[in-house]
């Protein structure tokens, strides 16, 4: 599986992006997006922000609070989007692109056409399911770790989220990569 992770400021400016592959089941942690997919990812991520705005208030409980983890919120073609929203409305958006086999697409099928895929879905047991508890838990753990590093970033008095300051610290990137390797 390949992942694209982006942090959006409250005014939808991307502050940090990171691409990585799964380290589970023998994965090497390298993202395998095709060139066209890679070009499309920012658009998918940005368009999912509309969905975030729809659900971020709606999850209200009677206590008037909502969880930061919004879980799986959107799907575009073969890409699944999960989101975490911080108290200050900074969005962590994770795009998951499962391998073709995990989508039930056979190797020969055209990418993007689900016609062959749907037939395969019934048969394959290893179909990727974005709402399975194991997946949601793994993504949540990843977000929790990133949130902690993010908190440390914004504690920096010279870092202004509102003015679109990009996270440049290589230490931050290393921490995100470590969280990705640990959980995804």
């Amino acid at each position: 599986m390949s992942y694209a992770f982006t942090i959006f400021s409250p005014i939808d400016t991307p502050l940090f992006t990171h691409e990585f592959g799964t380290s589970r089941s023998g994965g090497d942690g390298i993202a395998r997006f095709t060139t066209s997919e890679r070009a499309l990812n920012p658009f998918i991520l940005h368009s999912s922000l509309d969905i975030v705005e729809e659900v971020q208030w709606g999850l209200s409980t009677s206590a008037g609070s909502a969880p930061m983890y919004l879980k799986h919120i959107d799907k575009y073609q073969n890409c699944y989007i999960s989101c975490w929203i911080t108290g200050a409305n900074v969005r962590f958006v994770l795009l998951t692109r499962p391998r073709d086999e995990a989508l039930g697409l056979n190797a020969g099928a055209q990418r993007g056409s689900l016609a062959g895929g749907r037939a395969g879905l019934g048969a394959g047991g290893q179909v990727y399911n974005p709402t399975s508890p194991a997946t949601e838990e793994a993504v949540k753990n990843f977000f929790v770790d990133v949130y902690e590093v993010w908190l440390k970033t914004i504690m920096n008095p010279f870092f202004h989220v509102g003015s679109g300051d990009v996270v440049k610290s290589p230490v931050f990137r290393t921490r995100v990569a470590a969280a990705a390797k640990k959980y995804l």
Binding site: Q56, W57, L59, S60, G64, S65, A66, P67, M68, Y69, I85, T86, G87, A88, K140, V144, Y147, E148, W150, L151, I154, M155
Partner: peptide, 17 residues
């Protein structure tokens, strides 16, 4: 954000809506 993360178990992070 700092106080929200401190006030609860980080695994159950909530924000006021």
């Amino acid at each position: 954000d700092l106080l929200l993360s401190r006030s609860s178990n980080p695994l159950a992070s909530i924000r006021p809506t």
